[in-house]
Design a binder for these strands. Structure first.
Lengths: 179, 179, 179, 179
DNA sequence: TTTT
DNA sequence: TTTT
């Protein structure tokens, strides 16, 4: 096909802690449930209304799985860029069923924590929230995308520790490229 | 929720002519089936592989329905901006089923024809193409979004006749606003 | 042109309080200065590096100007969707100069507050932060886009008070449309 | 900064053939001039109006430079995903000047040819079109992003030969991952 | 199931 | 079911 694009952008909150599973060969897969919502005032009744949409997000990218596992908790606000994917499966009666998911897999995927509660306390955990620094825990490397094509330095993801992306920059921003 | 975003961007081809239905009160609803595809070369076998993803798109916006009805045909390439929405329904056995769709409804939705065959004649050839002008049929108004808040003129959509959007510009670009 | 798209999406922080001006006929125009930044670890030196990009954002949409004026302060984190626009002007020596801005004007523009400091204290003010409610000041209507084409109720923007958009939904989500 | 996003999406046409330069160490840099346009009908005069916006696009990504060089010509329609970047330079009088560009550099950048004339023959006609295959010249590999983290096969970019992206998929879509 |  |  002469150029197709399949892109989903979400900003929303996690309805639960991420679930991390592994494939047989040990690769992580993370599942997130993300809520987006809209609110408006009913024109006739004057009531405030709200509609919440739930999105099933599946992360195949290893680096982003790590981010999800380490930094994301129930309630966290995230920015996500991925692709729509519908997969077919059979229910217990052998009937075909379809599930549509937002898949983060590869170069054009992004996961960035934007703040929000995200303290995991709703899930029973007794943690503090500032432990991971609200999107800026940092400390370790924030380059989850593999090391390739970087002369000497390169921007790796977006912002601090709890931010990442599917790949990496190929240009050394310190270079004095004459453009 | 403190700011959420739910956005889908697709560029793909219609697998069939649009289906147009009407609600009881006469409002049009258009359904599109859009294919996006990716191709790559298998690292081991060297074979070329391709994966096609099908997207169900539902248009509630009246102006965009008109565009779909008038200009889009099987095979047409379109740019779409909408939202993810999952709706619940019961199958014949009364079991809950879910369908996820890309909904074009309101201000932040866009539908633009980008070309492609789009001749509605299937794979059988014999097309005309210039019948509807390849994204630029024009002639009629291209303002499908309702007339509001426009001092004297305003950009309505994007480009020619087979392009539109959920709303409209609120600034007259001819005005000499001193900014 | 057979379908063109010009879209900018930013998530960043305000470097200063919004500046609001008015045209001769009283229409508001808001200017925002928004910083986005990337950080990465230098491959050789191991140093953490950061690069900040500043974006000049101009809002012509009246509703979004109101949001900017009422809710946004230096430090606030915002999500923005607009268009690139370059305008020509003459400097004091009569030489042509060009400025590129992100323009929010009309249907496909969005401004949503995502949180962040946004307390305006950097600007000298002694305020409290909860005054405008961290993305949810609300209280008044959050429908800034004009009232059109809404049967009886419609989602107006995204989420609470400090969220908005250039237009509006054309479908009553309360309707029981059989799709 | 707790998660920032800087993204530009354009669909438009090249105003001229790409210019390719090289850095001292031989890395290619491509410059594109891309036009997006909007048209609308003036409310008062009834005249059709059009406004064209020109965007300067700079490609640092090697693979995308190759795509630009091989497949893009004046008139071609492209889909682009990049970042806003403003750089400072001195004019001949030593005065500071600023230029804002759309930069394609790294993982979250995309360049896809969508068709259009793109024959490089200016407005003079006499084109061939199939010379470069209308978005699907291909033949060679379409994986311009470097080979990393691919078990045995992976989708490389989007679609055929004249499509690419800044990076690559990290999951073998042939794997039978049980998700 | 989130968030406000 | 599209497109290449």
């Amino acid at each position: 096909m002469a150029g197709s694009v399949n892109k989903v952008i979400l900003i929303g909150n996690l309805g639960a802690d991420p679930e991390i599973r592994r494939t047989q060969d040990g690769k992580p897969i993370a599942n997130l449930n993300i809520a987006t919502s809209e609110s408006w005032r009913d024109r006739n009744s004057g009531e405030r209304k709200e509609k919440t949409e739930w999105h099933r997000v599946v992360i195949f990218n290893e680096g982003l799985c790590k981010v999800a596992e380490q930094y994301l908790k129930k309630g966290a606000t995230v920015y996500i860029e991925g692709q729509l994917q519908t997969r077919k499966w059979q229910d217990k009666d052998g009937q075909d069923r379809y599930s549509t998911e937002v898949v983060l897999q590869g170069f054009n995927s992004t996961l960035t924590m934007l703040g929000g509660r995200g303290d995991g306390q709703g899930a029973g955990g007794g943690r503090g929230g500032s432990e991971y620094g609200g999107g800026n825990a940092g400390g370790g490397s924030d380059n989850y995308g593999g090391d390739y094509d970087r002369p000497s330095s390169a921007p790796s993801g977006r912002s601090g520790g709890a931010s990442s992306s599917g790949g990496n920059f190929s240009r050394d921003m310190d270079d004095d490229i004459p453009f």
